[in-house]
Amino acid sequence: MTTTSKSESAAKKDVTKLQRAIVDGLEDVKAQDIQVFNTEHLSPLFERVIVATGGSNRQTKALASSVRDAVREAGFPKPRTEGEDNGEWIIVDCGQAVVHVMQPAIRQYYRLEEIWGEKPVRLKLGAAKPRKITASEDASAAPAKKAAAKKAPAKAAPAKAAAKKAPAAKKAAPAAKKPVAKKPAARKAAVKTVVVNKPVAKKAAAKAPAKRAAAKAPARKAPARKG
C-alpha cells in the first residue's frame, strides 16, 4: 500500500469519526430529523453536510454548544460557529464537516437537502452510548457491591432448608399407602363368613326333613295288657 492510499484511508476514518461525534452531540440535546450528506463530489472545502432541527432559539444554541463539545472530546480542533446571536440558523464549521442547526420554518424555506442531499449517508441514530463513570460514582458504588456480595450467601439458606424437608416428605409418602393394604383382609373375612355359613345352612336343611318325617309317622298304639 502506498503512502497516498494510507493517507486517504486515514482521512476517511477521520471523517467517519467526526460525523459520529457530531451526530452524538446532536442526539444528546434531542435534535430532530438529523440528516448526513456526502459532499466530496460537490465541494473541495468539506466532505460532509449535516442538517438538524431545533424547536426554539434556546435548543438550537444548546445543540451548537453540544456539537462543539463532542467534536473537541473526539480529538478534533475547536469548531467555529455563526448565527448564535439570532438562533434561527446556526452554522458549526468543523473543518471536514459543516453542521446546520435550523428551526423548522427556516429549514423548510431554504431546503438544504435539495442542494447537498444527492448522496445521503446512513448512520445508526439513537444508538446507546457508553456513559462515563466519574470517580465519585465509582466510590459510592463500591460499598453497594460489597453489601450485595455479603448478602448473596444468605440466599442459599432457604435452599438448604428445602433440601432437608424433602426427605421428610418422601418418608410420609409410604404412610399414605397403608390403608390400601387393608382391602385384602376385608375380602378374606367375607370369604370366611360365606364358608362358615354354608354348613349351617346344610344342617338346617337336614333338620327340616327330620321334623317333617316325624310329623308324618303314625302314632303307635300301646299294647293292651292281659287281664
Rank of each mutant, 00 (worst) to 15 (best):
I34S: 02
G83L: 12
A190S: 08
A189N: 06
E118F: 06
K150T: 05
K78Q: 14
A21W: 00
A97Q: 01
R107D: 02
A142K: 09
S9W: 10
P143F: 03
A189I: 10
D69K: 04
A154I: 06
E82R: 10
G25I: 00
D33V: 02
N197Q: 11
A210F: 12
A31D: 06
P44V: 13
P184C: 00
D24K: 04
A127C: 07
K183T: 08
K170P: 01
V71G: 00
A217C: 12
K155Q: 06
I133C: 09
E40V: 11
E73K: 11
Q59C: 03
A206R: 10
K30H: 11
Y110D: 02
A139W: 13
T16V: 09
K188N: 09
A152E: 06
A162G: 08
K129S: 11
K150E: 08
P143M: 03
A64G: 04
P184S: 01
H41A: 15
G75L: 03
A52T: 00
V101L: 05
A224I: 07
F37K: 04
S140M: 14
I115N: 04
V67Q: 00
A190L: 10
Y109T: 07
R187Q: 09
K178M: 09
V99P: 00
P104G: 04
F37C: 06
H41W: 09
E118R: 12
L42T: 08
P184L: 02
R107E: 00
R212Q: 15
L112H: 03
A185F: 10
V196R: 10
P130A: 15
P44C: 10
P184E: 02
V195D: 09
A204R: 12
K145S: 12
G95M: 02
V180C: 00
A219Q: 14
K150C: 04
V196K: 12
V121C: 04
A162P: 01
G227P: 11
V29T: 09
A201R: 10
K192H: 08
A149I: 06
D14L: 05
P184Y: 01
V194R: 10
A173I: 06
T193L: 05
R72W: 00
P120G: 03
R220G: 13
N57F: 07
I50F: 04
N38D: 15
A127F: 04
G83F: 11
K221G: 13
V194C: 02
A210T: 11
S7M: 14
A139L: 15
V29N: 08
T4C: 06
K13G: 13
E40P: 01
L112E: 00
R212Y: 11
S7P: 04
D93H: 07
R20Q: 11
A214E: 15
W89R: 05
P199R: 03
A128Q: 14
T53K: 01
D69M: 04
A205L: 10
A74C: 05
A189D: 10
G75R: 03
V191E: 12
I22A: 00
P209I: 11
Q103C: 07
K160W: 09
L63I: 03
S43W: 12
H100D: 03
G227V: 08
Q108W: 04
V71A: 01
K124L: 09
I133W: 08
E73T: 08
E114N: 14
A217M: 12
P44A: 12
R122Y: 05
P174W: 08
